[in-house]
C-alpha cells in the first residue's frame, strides 16, 4: 500500500462524485415552493418562521390558513430560495417540528411529473386614484388583465386580480403611472397539478 498520508494511495472503492462540502457558497440557488401541513396549534407559525430566521434560510413568500377545520390542519405555503443542499436541510428541519405532518416540495413534485411548475396563484388588491384619461386607461388595462373592480368612487378604484406572481408584478408596475396608491398581496397559494394529492 502506498503511503496514505500523502493521499496518493488509490482508494479501494470509487470515491463518490459529489462534493463533500455542502456549504459551498457558490452553489447555484433555486426557488422552491414548499407546502407544509401542520396541526393548527398556537405558535405553530412562529415555530416555522423562527426556524427560517434562526437558521438563516430565506422566505420569499408565505401564505397560511386553516384548510381542514375538523382536523385543525393548516397549510403553510412557503416560497424559499437556496442551494439544493440547503433546500434539503430546510425540508428535514421542517419535518422535525413536532406539529408538522407533511412537507411537500411542490417544485420537486412538478419536476417529477414533467411539469414546468406547480400551480401557483396570488391575489392582489390594487388601489388606483385619478381622474380623466388616466382613470379610463386604468380601467382599460384592468380589463385586459381580467382584474375586477371591487371598490370605486369617482376618484378611485380598487382592483382585485389573481394570477401568477409575475402577472401580479406586471399589473402593479403598469398601474404605477396610472395613480397607484397602495397594494396588498396575499402571497403564493399553491397545489400540485393533476388529480393526485400533493
Amino acid at each position: 500500500m502506498s503511503d496514505p498520508t500523502t493521499m496518493t494511495g488509490k482508494p479501494a472503492l470509487t470515491p463518490p462524485a459529489s462534493a463533500y462540502f455542502i456549504e459551498e457558497r457558490h452553489d447555484p440557488e433555486e426557488a422552491h415552493t414548499l407546502s407544509v401541513l401542520v396541526d393548527n396549534e398556537p405558535g405553530v407559525l412562529a415555530r416555522v418562521i423562527g426556524l427560517f430566521s434562526g437558521r438563516g434560510y430565506n422566505i420569499e413568500s408565505l401564505t397560511v390558513s386553516e384548510t381542514e377545520h375538523e382536523k385543525h390542519l393548516s397549510r403553510i405555503t412557503i416560497v424559499t430560495r437556496g442551494s439544493r443542499a440547503v433546500l434539503e436541510q430546510i425540508k428535514n428541519q421542517l419535518v422535525r417540528l413536532v406539529p408538522v405532518h407533511r412537507v411537500t416540495d411542490l417544485s420537486e413534485v412538478a419536476r417529477a411529473r414533467n411539469q414546468e411548475k406547480p400551480l401557483e396563484r396570488e391575489l392582489a388588491l390594487v388601489k388606483v386614484a385619478g381622474k380623466g384619461e388616466k382613470r379610463l386607461e386604468a380601467l382599460r388595462l384592468a380589463d385586459a388583465f381580467k382584474a375586477e373592480v371591487v371598490d370605486a368612487t369617482t376618484e378611485h378604484f380598487i382592483f382585485q386580480m389573481t394570477g401568477r406572481s409575475t402577472k401580479v408584478e406586471q399589473f402593479i408596475s403598469i398601474m404605477q403611472p396610472m395613480g397607484l396608491v397602495e397594494v396588498c398581496r396575499t402571497g403564493v397559494a399553491a397545489l400540485s397539478r393533476g388529480a393526485e394529492p400533493s
Binding site: 463518490p16 459529489s18 462534493a19 463533500y20 462540502f21 455542502i22 456549504e23 443542499a85 434539503e88 436541510q89 428535514n92 428541519q93 419535518v95 422535525r96
Partner: peptide, 16 residues
C-alpha cells in the same frame, strides 16, 4: 460515508 442517525436533519447537514 455511511451515516446512521435517528434525526433525518443530521444527515447531509455538514457532510454528504
Amino acid at each position: 460515508k455511511i451515516h446512521i442517525d435517528i434525526d433525518p436533519s443530521s444527515i447531509n447537514k455538514n457532510v454528504r
